[in-house]
């Protein structure tokens, strides 16, 4: 989708499907990295859980392809909730469900997308009873949401991609020196310091995959 197309017709299910494929691929490719991060400060299941969840999303591809983007996001959220098996299922599931709800029958342009992401971030905060600074996926999502909102309706795709990826990378990296106060890592207290949060990393991977799928120039 180019930003011009998006302004006129909104996000199509074809473009969303391409983004979903890219997200599934990156999560599957990085499953062992996510598991290694989680073994350092959690229970070591984040990679496998996310892989299982997103492979189930891939399994729902035929259903998703026949849906509106809003309904497709709902299918993704429900699928993750029912299949991930760890806390990241309800957390990522709630993100996608809230994004679906925020569409509210509008064509999805960059402004609507920013509203959707903000609604999703609110849902993650509410589900996790968490906020910024607690060494979670929010460390990635909050700056990405701010960057998308700041980009406005007519952002240049290449510049937007660079801004969102930079925000995601900086956000995930910012979790390294933080002390966890939510989730399993909170049991480690000071020992959680010095490790990247696996949820912040998986969120960074997803943001990168979505940007590339939406905005990369056609080969």
């Amino acid at each position: 989708m180019s930003s011009t197309d998006a302004a006129q017709t909104g996000l199509t299910i074809e473009a969303l499907t391409k983004a979903i494929d890219a997200v599934v691929a990156t999560i599957v490719d990085h499953a062992s990295e996510l598991t290694d991060l989680d073994m350092a400060i959690g229970d070591g299941d984040h990679g496998l859980n996310m892989k299982r969840g997103f492979e189930a999303v891939r399994g729902a591809a035929a259903k998703i392809a026949a849906q509106t983007p809003a309904d497709a996001l709902k299918t993704i959220g429900t699928t993750l909730i029912m299949t991930v098996g760890g806390a990241s299922g309800p957390l990522y599931g709630s993100l996608f469900l809230a994004m679906s709800k925020a569409v509210a029958d509008r064509p999805i342009d960059l402004v609507v997308a920013a509203e959707m992401l903000e609604a999703g971030i609110q849902a993650v905060q509410s589900r996790g009873k968490s906020h910024a600074g607690e060494k979670t996926m929010l460390e990635t999502l909050i700056p990405v949401g701010a960057a998308l909102t700041a980009a406005g309706p007519a952002a240049d795709p290449a510049a937007l991609t660079a801004a969102l990826k930079a925000a995601a990378a900086a956000g995930a990296a910012s979790t390294v020196p933080l002390r966890a106060s939510k989730g399993r890592a909170s049991f480690l207290g000071e020992r959680s310091i010095g490790h990247m949060d696996p949820g912040a990393r998986s969120s960074e991977l997803m943001v990168g995959a979505v940007c590339d799928a939406f905005f990369a120039p056609a080969p």
């Binding site: 309800p90 996790g128 399993r184």
Partner: peptide
Amino acid sequence: DLGGAETNSEMAIEM
């Protein structure tokens, strides 16, 4: 027992 069990139980209740 632990964090994910609580989050998943909250999700199950909401559904």
